[in-house]
């Protein structure tokens, strides 16, 4: 039983977002990149726990991106993944990324493919379900708990106003959200070991891009904050009613 964990390389959550080339590209100058938090904290850590519990044998990382994301992949290996593959291509959209992941997974027999809930840069929540669609596999979306016994996986996810527990036979694609595992920090041994773990590089297949980004714009921040005092709550209520028109 092998698990494939898809990791994305994203700007650190505190990054000041800027664009370049006429607002058509993200300006990565001086930006620190990290593993997408959902991919690292939930998908990868849970995969490692399943391996430690001897229900999974191997955890492989897959990343679709250019050589500059190698540090991110090594970080994933230092946390305990066995090996990694990088598809050397930069995708214009989720479909492209998903197609690369599906192509690799199809020929390498992974029984479980884990992705994060969403990337914190494109916020698409799309790649996992597209992989499942391309491979004709069942998809469990936004799981907050994940278990495995034999050939069956059990997962839990939030509904609007509740939770649902489901069961599904392998192989399966699952997107992972908060609750599934606790974040870990790599130890020295892990960091040393990561340097020599296998990282294969394969070429992308140049799938058609169905969407492209034309331009970016920063969302306008709030310019002024009206300050009130606590003895003036009637005034606040009045402003919310007459000025903001929200109550």
């Amino acid at each position: 039983m092998k698990i494939l964990v898809a990791i994305s390389n994203v700007p650190d959550t505190t990054t000041k977002i800027q664009f370049t080339e006429g607002d058509s590209k993200f300006n990565s100058q001086g930006v620190t990149f990290v593993i997408n938090p959902y991919d690292e904290w939930y998908a990868l850590v849970r995969a490692l726990e399943l391996k430690e519990a001897n229900v999974a044998e191997k955890v492989t990382l897959i990343h679709v991106g250019l050589p500059d994301s190698e540090a991110t992949i090594r970080k994933g290996l230092s946390l305990g993944a066995d090996d990694a593959v990088r598809v050397n291509a930069e995708g214009p959209d989720a479909f492209f990324v998903a197609e690369q992941i599906a192509n690799y997974a199809k020929t390498n027999n992974y029984e479980m493919i884990l992705v994060g809930k969403e990337t914190i840069n494109y916020n698409g929540s799309s790649v996992g379900a597209i992989v499942a669609g391309l491979m004709d596999l069942p998809f469990i979306s936004l799981a907050t708990k994940l278990d495995l016994t034999g050939n069956k996986t059990t997962a839990e996810y939030d509904l609007d106003g509740g939770v649902q527990i489901v069961e599904c036979d392998l192989p399966v694609v699952i997107s992972c959200a908060k609750g599934m595992a606790e974040p870990r920090i790599p130890n020295m041994r892990g960091i040393m070991a990561a340097r020599t773990k296998p990282l294969a590089v394969i070429e992308g297949n140049g799938a058609a891009s169905l969407t492209t980004v034309k331009s970016y714009a920063l969302n306008p921040g709030r310019t002024t904050c009206k300050m009130l005092t606590e003895d003036n709550m009637d005034e606040l209520v009045n402003l919310l009613h007459t000025e903001a028109k929200v109550i």
């Binding site: 914190i120 916020n123 492209t212 980004v213 331009s215 970016y216 920063l218 969302n219």
Partner: peptide
């Protein structure tokens, strides 16, 4: 919205 609401992007759908 992209970058967790800090920015927005205009996508072109070609299909």
């Amino acid at each position: 919205n992209v970058f967790s609401g800090k920015a927005n992007a205009t996508y072109v759908i070609h299909s």
